[in-house]
Computed example of a mutant assay.
Amino acid sequence: MIRTVALAGLSLVILTACGKGADSGAKAEDPNVALRPLIARWSKDLEATHPACGVKVEGKGCQDFQVTCKAIHEVSPDDAKKGITDQVVAAMTFAARNPDGSTGKSGSAFALFSKTGDTWSQGGSDPVNLQTCAPV
């Protein structure tokens, strides 16, 4: 239990650290705060549905969820017509758990977060570089 809480806290610290600061050309509004609940839900969804997390050990299928990068994603003209004003792409890594509780095979997932009005939503994303979030 303590490990789970520590890992969740570490994920939030990493999430904050991965965001671009205003001095690096990012938009003035920092999406990190608004995306935290979505990213927490994303890790829970991955644990429930990702094939690497299928074998459950003490109710947990994966561990060590870490957001490895987040980057502003250019809003396409078609998305802008739908009212989307901002987009952020993110990559997350995690590891399966072996029956003995040790770390198993690593996995990764990608998401595109879109802002319409004051609301952020999550959608799928093509794979990106795990460190830079650049398309692969």
Score class of each variant (00 low, 15 high):
residue 4 T to H: 14
residue 7 L to Q: 15
residue 128 V to A: 13
residue 119 T to E: 14
residue 42 W to G: 00
residue 74 E to N: 04
residue 63 Q to I: 06
residue 22 A to S: 02
residue 56 K to C: 09
residue 127 P to S: 03
residue 86 D to R: 11
residue 85 T to W: 06
residue 61 G to F: 09
residue 90 A to M: 11
residue 97 R to Q: 15
residue 17 A to E: 04
residue 123 G to M: 14
residue 121 S to F: 06
residue 62 C to N: 04
residue 6 A to Y: 10
residue 34 A to G: 10
residue 91 A to M: 11
residue 116 T to Q: 01
residue 42 W to M: 02
residue 133 C to D: 08
residue 44 K to V: 08
residue 28 A to W: 14
residue 32 N to I: 14
residue 62 C to H: 12
residue 111 A to N: 09
residue 20 K to M: 08
residue 21 G to N: 00
residue 95 A to N: 05
residue 31 P to A: 00
residue 8 A to D: 11
residue 111 A to E: 07
residue 35 L to K: 03
residue 91 A to H: 10
residue 87 Q to G: 04
residue 38 L to N: 03
residue 80 A to E: 12
residue 13 V to L: 00
residue 120 W to I: 07
residue 68 T to Q: 04
residue 112 L to S: 08
residue 117 G to H: 12
residue 70 K to P: 05
residue 39 I to V: 15
residue 128 V to H: 03
residue 46 L to P: 01
residue 28 A to H: 13
residue 94 F to E: 14
residue 61 G to K: 07
residue 124 G to H: 03
residue 25 G to M: 04
residue 61 G to R: 07
residue 15 L to M: 14
residue 16 T to A: 15
residue 116 T to V: 00
residue 25 G to K: 03
residue 71 A to M: 13
residue 108 S to M: 11
residue 55 V to H: 08
residue 11 S to N: 15
residue 52 A to L: 07
residue 13 V to D: 00
residue 63 Q to L: 04
residue 126 D to K: 14
residue 71 A to H: 07
residue 115 K to A: 11
residue 100 D to V: 08
residue 8 A to Y: 05
residue 98 N to H: 03
residue 136 V to Y: 01
residue 72 I to C: 08
residue 35 L to C: 05
residue 130 L to Q: 10
residue 50 H to D: 03
residue 42 W to S: 01
residue 24 S to C: 00
residue 88 V to C: 09
residue 39 I to C: 12
residue 98 N to C: 02
residue 54 G to F: 13
residue 45 D to M: 01
residue 86 D to M: 13
residue 32 N to L: 15
residue 104 G to F: 14
residue 63 Q to M: 07
residue 11 S to F: 05
residue 117 G to T: 13
residue 131 Q to N: 09
residue 12 L to S: 12
residue 101 G to P: 06
residue 131 Q to F: 10
residue 33 V to I: 07
residue 14 I to N: 12
residue 17 A to M: 06
residue 99 P to T: 06
residue 12 L to R: 09
residue 89 V to W: 00
residue 80 A to S: 15
